[in-house]
Structure formats: C-alpha cells, structure tokens
Simulated assay, not measured.
Amino acid sequence: MSVVEEVRLSLPHIELAAHLFGPENGRPVIALHGWLDNANSFARLAPRLEDLRIIALDMAGHGHSGHRPPGASYSLWDSAHDVLQVAEQLGLKRFALLGHSMGAIVALVLAGSLPERVTHLALIDGLIPPTAKGDNAAERMGMALQAQLDLQHKRKPVYETLERAIEARMKGLVAVSREAAELLAQRGLMPVPGGYTWRTDNRLTLPSPVRLTDEQAMAFVARIGCPAHLVVASGGLLVQHRALLERLPFSHEQLPGGHHLHVNDEAGAALVADCFNRFFSDS
C-alpha cells in the first residue's frame, strides 16, 4: 500500500484528522466516508486514483477526529460546514468531492448549496438525504427528542478482544468483509477497561429530528453545476431505487459488489478506481 500522510486540521470549531494521498500538486479532492466508518474507508481506493491529491477526512465524531461539544448534534449541514472549513484551512477556493454513503450525501448537499466551489462530484452508493412526507414532522421530532434523552443512559459496547470487535463490525447494519472491518478497526477502535470500544460518538446513532421532503432533496441535485458521476453497487443500498436514478441529471453506472465495494476487496477498489480515473480525466 502506498505512503499515506496523517494530518490534523485545527478548524475554528473542531479538530479533524485526515489522511493525505497522492501528489501535492494533484487536483484537490476532499473524500468523505460513510456513517460510523473513517478515513480508512479510502485506504484501498485512494492510492489507485491518478493525479489527485486526496484529503480523506475522519468526519466529526469518527476515527481520530474530535467529537462535537455537549448539546450539539450531527447533522448533514454541520458536516457540510466542516468540509468548507477544511477547504478554507487548506486554501482551496475550488475543490472536488468524493463521497461514500453518508459522505456522498454530504458531498451532494455541499455541491448543490455552493456549486461555484465544487469542481467534480464523485459518489459511491449514496445520493440524496433520507426524505419523508411533511405530515409526520411532529411525530419524527418527538421520536428524536426522546431518543436524545434516552441516550444519556446508554453505554457503548465493550469487546473483550480486537477479534470480537472486528466480527461485530463485519455483521453491522451494513455487512463488510473481514479485511474492510480490520481496516476500519485500525482507526475506529480504542482500548478501554475490559477490552476495546469504538471511538465513534454515541450521538451519531440518534435519529434525525427533521427530514427533507423529496422535492427539497432533489433541489440540491438540480443545482449541481459541476461534472458528477455516481457508482451504484449491485448489492448495495441504491440499486432498488430505479425511479430515483432515472431522475438524475448526471451519469451513473452499476458495478458488482456490496455497499462498501471500494474497501471490501482489491478487485472492488480497482473497479471503482478505473471508473473515477476515467471520470476525472474526461471532465
């Protein structure tokens, strides 16, 4: 695996960790991982991307990055603000975005909100924020507020051994390969009395108090002004949403593999890299 540089970015409101890949003079690309993952999500893919300077973040509350202060929450909009602050810190007026799953959603929201800042949008099995009909807004808010109260009494699981923690990650909400679980565990686990637990902030598991309507979510898609390309995993989360995919004003293609195809194995990483190398060189 190629040399990777570890950096810490002291933003005005939080400190984030990141991995840097590729030549310093390459096209700047900020890479955003999925929910409860970390920068190692791009450990297989990033070294295969050509002529790009990849800044793979541990997003707030994940990996080695800081947690938000007490009373704060983890919204997509806050994550988009973090990315902008990273760009400011690195002196990037314009930059590309590479996102997987939740990271893809954050990338799309930012590209639609400030289209003049984003040069390219590369998405892996993630697209628009989860949507809901407006008439259940009060019920959703109540559920979220109650969950926030209940979280005070919940403790993260402690695993006696690294092996048990890795096995638990393999069988998570979205299953990953053993190799992917081991990569994510390298940055995601920390020792505690009695064994190991995940570094991720418990508040990341809270339900969102507000969801956009379908019309609001698609407004972000409509406002994207840069070349964009979406990889859909054949065994992933988006493949069933044919109607949504057909509404996209930008290109997409389906590749074999699960939701984490870019990190599950070398073959999947190679397929995604080939796809995005063509995308970045052609646009």
Results as ranks from 00 to 15, higher is better:
residue 107 A to D: 05
residue 114 L to A: 15
residue 73 S to T: 15
residue 71 G to S: 08
residue 108 L to M: 14
residue 94 R to D: 10
residue 64 H to G: 04
residue 115 P to N: 08
residue 54 I to G: 02
residue 116 E to D: 15
residue 94 R to C: 07
residue 68 R to Y: 02
residue 70 P to L: 09
residue 61 G to T: 03
residue 71 G to R: 11
residue 118 V to E: 08
residue 79 S to Y: 15
residue 111 A to T: 03
residue 84 L to T: 13
residue 92 L to P: 07
residue 87 A to F: 06
residue 84 L to F: 08
residue 74 Y to E: 01
residue 99 G to A: 09
residue 60 A to W: 02
residue 92 L to T: 05
residue 111 A to P: 08
residue 58 D to V: 01
residue 113 S to H: 15
residue 74 Y to M: 01
residue 106 V to A: 02
residue 96 A to M: 13
residue 115 P to K: 07
residue 80 A to F: 00
residue 120 H to K: 13
residue 68 R to W: 07
residue 116 E to L: 07
residue 73 S to H: 14
residue 117 R to V: 06
residue 66 G to A: 13
residue 109 V to P: 00
residue 102 M to V: 01
residue 106 V to D: 01
residue 112 G to W: 04
residue 88 E to L: 08
residue 120 H to C: 05
residue 72 A to V: 00
residue 78 D to H: 10
residue 120 H to T: 08
residue 61 G to Q: 05
residue 118 V to F: 02
residue 103 G to L: 11
residue 94 R to K: 15
residue 74 Y to K: 01
residue 91 G to L: 07
residue 96 A to R: 13
residue 72 A to R: 11
residue 83 V to S: 00
residue 69 P to K: 05
residue 112 G to V: 02
residue 97 L to Y: 03
residue 63 G to M: 10
residue 93 K to E: 15
residue 121 L to G: 06
residue 113 S to F: 12
residue 68 R to H: 07
residue 104 A to T: 06
residue 111 A to V: 04
residue 61 G to N: 03
residue 86 V to E: 01
residue 86 V to L: 02
residue 55 I to A: 11
residue 92 L to D: 05
residue 95 F to R: 06
residue 56 A to H: 13
residue 89 Q to T: 14
residue 114 L to K: 15
residue 70 P to R: 12
residue 59 M to N: 11
residue 58 D to E: 05
residue 92 L to E: 05
residue 90 L to E: 11
residue 83 V to K: 00
residue 115 P to A: 07
residue 91 G to K: 08
residue 67 H to K: 12
residue 97 L to M: 08
residue 65 S to N: 11
residue 120 H to Y: 11
residue 76 L to R: 03
residue 99 G to N: 07
residue 70 P to C: 00
residue 73 S to K: 02
residue 79 S to W: 11
residue 71 G to E: 08
residue 107 A to W: 05
residue 80 A to G: 07
residue 109 V to C: 03
residue 118 V to P: 01
residue 109 V to W: 02
residue 94 R to M: 04
residue 56 A to L: 12
residue 104 A to G: 14
residue 77 W to E: 12
residue 73 S to D: 13
residue 92 L to F: 13
residue 56 A to E: 12
residue 94 R to Y: 08
residue 66 G to I: 08
residue 64 H to Y: 15
residue 68 R to M: 06
residue 104 A to L: 06
residue 70 P to Y: 03
residue 102 M to Y: 11
residue 69 P to L: 03
residue 110 L to G: 02
residue 68 R to I: 03
residue 108 L to N: 09
residue 72 A to I: 00
